[in-house]
Design a protein around this nucleic acid. Structure first.
Length: 489
RNA sequence: GGUAUCGUGGCCGAGUGGCUAGGCUAUGCUCUGCAAAAGCAUCUACAGCAGUUCGAAUCUGCUCGAUACCUCCA
């Protein structure tokens, strides 16, 4: 491959040229959802971000194994529930089996991701399906002397670990700072040091999700699943690990420590983190009460939403910002994105009907080059989209007869749009899914009648048709070649 | 308190030591029977202060402000 992809590596805080471990192959692990609640905007960001990374790497002729976990064992909760498993807690409240809840929300998550046109990962392992692997890993860490058992729980001995491996390299912390900022938590009396973290936890009597282990009945520690499953499917060291920025510490820092403690090698070469989504300038969070789930977005039922927004509008909106920037959701911004997206997709359609000339006033090759350059630079989708809008202007100008493209450039432009808009950015026209042939045929007839009316200067009828369709939410667009229509938002 | 990130035009949002980001909005023009769409044009910003430099919005320092992580979270 002649092009070089640069990735911003959280580990070094620099952009680095991407070189995979195995030539032409990429192993990528992304932290997936904890399936104990409805999928929300926060899930959309990494879903879409790494979907584009996945698509672009594949387009760049890498064979990619994309692993994204489903966390169904639940993480610990450190509130009044005394460390009760999240999923177990919800199950008890709703009188359901834990796996029933897990199943329900896993399906919701899959549906939301499909709506957003995110490709399914290559492997989607579940934490509960890999308890044995996690126990084995804990055993190995114990054997290597980096962990200790207390009363049925096993903790990673961070101070001991830090003697051999630097702890805190990913998040830029050291043990002293971490200790200083650590609050007193439940179960801390068992730990040798406040910075130690559980890799296996003893199950309390009310804990429903529990497994037998060499240390008694319990469940895996907060961070074990990712270490165990990434190693199983991608190896002891793999290329890319992704996730939200909020996972840098402690989750990913712990993963690095576990892998080093177990395998004596760094698990990941390139760490990628997407930034947070904000609503009204604040992080969306359960505790803040400002979180909007995806279903509410798609049907507009949340109080903060003026109306519904299509999944593709959200996808476009998210990709119009760089993945390492925060993106603030507001009705105004979403509606602007929606219009921009419609403009882009309309140009895609126009591209299919314009015809070639003998000469070109535009260099399509230069556009292609710019698009690749943008994506090679740490997956810069906003720049890519800006370049594509340059193409949009050309397409519309060609239609107006103000610019021209020869057949070579026209084909190239079609190729660019299919590649970048459809394949890489993953945008699909809402028309494709929303309407059927019957509608199209009826509309063709209506437009034909209106055109006839216009020809015979019966503007009263022509305007009546236009106005009535407008009331029904259909917009008529006249041009030299004839009329077309689209459903208004 | 510790660790990071960020402050860009009416709004959203890129970028960067010197040359137009882009989208949305607004105004004008062109096209059109009219309108819409589309094209063109205009509105030309980089929190504040000081420094480095021939030149900084871009580098350095300070000030102010915002956000995030340090606790489950994407």
């Amino acid at each position: 491959m002649s092009r070089k992809i640069q990735i911003f590596n959280t580990l070094t805080r620099k952009k680095e040229v991407f070189n995979p471990i195995v030539e032409n192959h990429v192993g990528m692990y992304v932290c997936g959802p904890t399936v104990y609640g409805d999928p929300h905007l926060g899930h959309a960001r990494p879903g879409i971000t790494f979907d584009v990374v996945f698509r672009y790497l594949k387009h760049s002729e890498y064979k990619v194994r994309y692993v994204r976990n489903i966390t169904d064992a639940g993480h610990l909760e450190n509130d009044a529930d005394e460390g009760e498993d999240k999923i177990a807690k919800k199950a008890r409240l709703e009188q359901l089996e834990p796996m029933e809840i897990v199943q329900f929300y896993t399906i919701s998550y899959h549906k939301a991701m499909a709506d957003l046109n995110c490709l399914p990962p290559s492997i989607e392992p579940r934490a509960t399906g890999h308890i044995i692997e996690q126990i084995e890993m804990v055993q190995q860490i114990l054997k290597n002397g980096f962990a200790y058992e207390v009363n049925g729980s096993v903790y990673l001995d961070v101070n001991k670990y830090n003697e051999k491996y630097p702890y805190g390299t990913l998040s830029g912390r050291n043990i002293e700072d971490t200790l200083e900022g650590t609050r007193s938590l439940d179960g801390q009396t068992e730990k040798k040091s406040a910075v130690d973290f559980a890799i296996w936890k003893k199950a309390s009597p009310e804990h429903i999700m529990r497994w037998s282990s060499p240390w008694g009945e319990g469940f895996p520690g907060w961070h074990m699943e990712c270490s165990a499953m990434s190693e199983k499917y991608l190896g002891k060291t793999f290329d890319i690990h992704g996730g939200g920025m909020d996972l840098v510490f402690p989750h990913h820092e712990a993963e690095i420590a576990q892998s080093n403690a177990c395998n004596a090698c760094n698990p990941v070469n390139y760490w990628m983190h997407n930034n947070m989504i904000t609503v009204d300038g604040k992080k969306m969070g359960k505790s803040l009460g400002n979180f909007i789930n995806l279903e509410e977005f798609f049907n507009g039922s949340h109080d903060k939403l003026e109306r519904a927004y299509a999944p593709m509008t959200i996808r476009f909106f998210i990709l119009q910002a760089h993945y390492r920037s925060t993106v603030d959701f507001s009705n105004e911004a979403l509606q602007a994105a929606e219009k921009g997206f419609t403009k882009l997709m309309n140009a895609m359609e126009t591209l299919g009907v314009i015809s070639a000339s003998d000469t070109s006033t535009y260099d399509a090759n230069a556009l292609e080059e710019k698009c690749y350059t943008a994506m090679d630079d740490d997956f810069n989708t906003p720049i890519l989209i800006a370049h594509l809008f340059d193409g949009v202007r050309i397409i519309n100008s060609v239609k107006d007869g103000k610019e021209s493209l020869n057949s070579v450039d026209l084909e190239k432009l079609k190729n660019i749009f299919n590649t970048f808009v459809t394949d890489i950015l993953g945008f699909i026209s809402s028309k494709e899914s929303g309407e059927n042939n019957l509608t199209n045929e009826v509309m063709d007839l209506v437009l034909q009648l209106r055109t006839n009316a216009k020809k015979s200067k019966d503007f009263e009828t022509a305007d009546l048709i236009r106005e009535e369709l407008d009331k029904a939410g259909i917009q008529i667009k006249d041009s030299r070649e004839g009329s077309s229509w689209e459903v208004k938002n």
